[in-house]
Each structure stands twice: as C-alpha cells, then as structure tokens.
Write a protein that binds this DNA or RNA. Structure first.
Lengths: 176, 176
DNA sequence: AAGCCATATTTGATAAGCCAAACTTTTTAT
DNA sequence: ATAAAAAGTTTGGCTTATCAAATATGGCTT
C-alpha cells in the first residue's frame, strides 16, 4: 500500500548515485579520485562533497586509503555500474526507438536512471537487443512504426543513432 | 551542462504531484476534497497536508472556496492530468510490453511518472498505440520478441493484460 | 624552520517535506 | 446557547543536500 511513498525506500538517492558514478569515472579516466576532484567534476563545493562522501563512506559504498584517495567498495561499484547501465539503456531506448532528441533523452534518462528496478532495466535491455537483432520482425516493426508516425526513418545500414545504440547495447550486455 | 542537476528544475515534485492527483481523484469520486480528506487518503498527518496545500496554493495550482473545499486551477488540473497520464502509459509499457509484474510496474511508474518530459510521454503513447494497432508488424514483433526471451506469450484475443493495456490507451488518447 | 598553497573539514544557513503535539476555528448536536 | 467533535493551522524537531565562509591539516619551497 501507499505506492507513492515507495520512493523513500530507494537504494540510493539521485545525488548519491552521481557521486558514486563520478568516483568510478575519475578512477577510470585519471587513475584516482579525491574529494576535491569529485567536487570539481560535479561543480559542487568541496564542503558539500566532503559531507556527502563521509555519508557514503558510513553507508559502506566507498573508502579512503592513507593518502585520501577514494576507492569504491564492491557494493559501491555494483551500484555505480547498475545506475550507469540503466542510463545507457534508457538513452538508447529514448533516442533509438522513440526518437527523442539527444539532449532531452539525456535529461530524462538522468532523472530516472536510479529509480527503475533491476527487473525493468534487464527487460528493457532484452527488448532493445531483440529489436536490433537479426530477427527481421524488429526492424520491420520499427520501420512501419516510424513511417506511421512520421518520425525520421532510419536506414539501418547507415544511421548513426542506430549504430550508436547498437554499440552501446553490445557494451552493456558484456558488462551486465 | 550539469545534466545531473536538472532534477532541481522539475515542474513539480513527486510529493506535489501526488497531492494534486489526490485532490483531482477525490473531487471525481466524492465530489469534494478538503485538507483532511487529502491527508486521510494519502496517509499523512493533517498538519503536513495543511502546509503542503498552502504551498501548492501559493504556486497557483489550487484554491479553496468559502467553505474550504479545494479546487484545482487550470494549471493544477493540467499537471495532475499529465502526471496521471504518464503513469498509465508507463504501466502499460512495463506490464504490456516488458512483462514486468503488476506490483513492480506500479512502483516503477509511480517513481518516474512526474519526471519524464512531455515529449517522451507523447512518443511512448504513440509507440504503444502502434504496437497494439491493426498493423500486423506490431503483433508479429511482440510475439517473436516474447518467444525469443521466454516471456509469457499473449494471445491477443484473450489476454487480459493486452485488453487492459488497449483500453487504457484508448482512454489516454481521448483525453490527451 | 617559516610560510605558503592545496586539500579537507567544520559551522551556520537554507529549502523541502515529513512527524507529533499543541492550539484555534468551525460545525454539529444537545 | 453551550459543549463536544471535527477540521485546520502552527510550532518545533528531523533528514537530505546544497551553499558560503571559517578553520584545520599537510606538504613543498625557500
């Protein structure tokens, strides 16, 4: 009951998810992440970052080594990966199927990436994979759907969005 | 830039959206809505309801008549309608296409209904309508997609979910 | 060793949205 | 007309997440 209050029981907040993803991304890109790196990257003050990172540490999502370099715990890594994964899948669906423009697709995806359930993320991935698979029903359906609704018609051999979506899905299913 | 902070500029909060929808629903069902009716319906204290409703009034989403009965403004009605509409479309997609179970579909939909853009809502509706239209590509695609992923196969003539989704979409497009 | 600079933390403020409990106003019933 | 019940508001407290500004801490340079 009271479905509308389920949002209070989310695994992670919007803000928290972005801290974890930023730490993960910084470590990947430059090999390390400190409080101030995260603050700079996210455009928040070091004070805010310090407080939020302390709270994430207390929740077990990350640690600091003796030199104050941040490290995601297994749980932190899993969460960051899951949210990032959901974002990519959502963007692929919004852009590649619904033909939402890139900017809006990113905004919508970013708002809901941490809110959809694991099941929904999984199923959406399967759905997109099938749509772009060799099975002819997917492409036939998309073509007639776009045609019926006067959305841009994609030539699957040359369309940049389709290619991008396809690549994204390949990456996703490898790390999923 | 800073897509991750776009959530601060949402038209309405999760909480606000549910207050407006509750007022709309109460007026529809019992002809009127007072502060205490809303509180009872949403399972929050009258004090909380009083404060939130004052704030919604200050934002122009609703008014009170001389007898303290609540009335949605045009803007309030539009917003409540839009969020409700998004919820129905999302549930239809999650249940009817991805085969997410009813309970999870409602939770997911409730969390994101107020966050997706108008464009995304519109396009998702078009997508579902086409999928369930007379065009044979939609059903052929769904059938082979479900088959490929060992999801329950629907017989479109007798499947309750499909019927439910179909009915919902008819209602949606009439009031959209 | 002294001082400077980068980095990190703490403090006090704000905003949303909830609660409990106290208080006020209005309605209803005797 | 008065008392009781219902409805509504106010107050003080809590949490999350931000900010600005003040305050540590730690390392490098001269």
């Amino acid at each position: 009951m009271d479905v509308w209050r389920e949002f209070e029981h989310n695994e992670i907040t919007h803000s928290g998810a972005h801290y974890l993803m930023t730490v993960q991304q910084l470590i990947e890109e430059q090999g390390y992440a400190r409080v101030s790196d995260v603050a700079r990257e996210m455009h928040i003050t070091p004070g805010s970052a310090s407080i939020m990172i302390k709270s994430l540490r207390e929740k077990g999502y990350l640690e600091e080594d003796r030199n104050r370099f941040l490290l995601l715990s297994d749980e932190g890594n899993r969460l960051a990966q899951s949210v990032w994964s959901h974002r990519q899948i959502l963007i692929a669906f919004l852009k590649g199927v619904l033909h939402i423009d890139a900017e809006q697709a990113e905004i919508d995806a970013c708002k809901i990436e941490h809110l959809i359930s694991t099941k929904t993320g999984e199923r959406l991935l399967l759905f997109l994979q099938f749509l772009l698979s060799d099975d002819p029903h997917g492409k036939a359906f998309l073509k007639s759907y776009w045609d019926a609704n006067v959305l841009a018609i994609c030539d699957f051999e040359t369309c940049a969005v389709c290619e991008e979506v396809g690549e994204c899905l390949v990456i996703r299913s490898e790390s999923a």
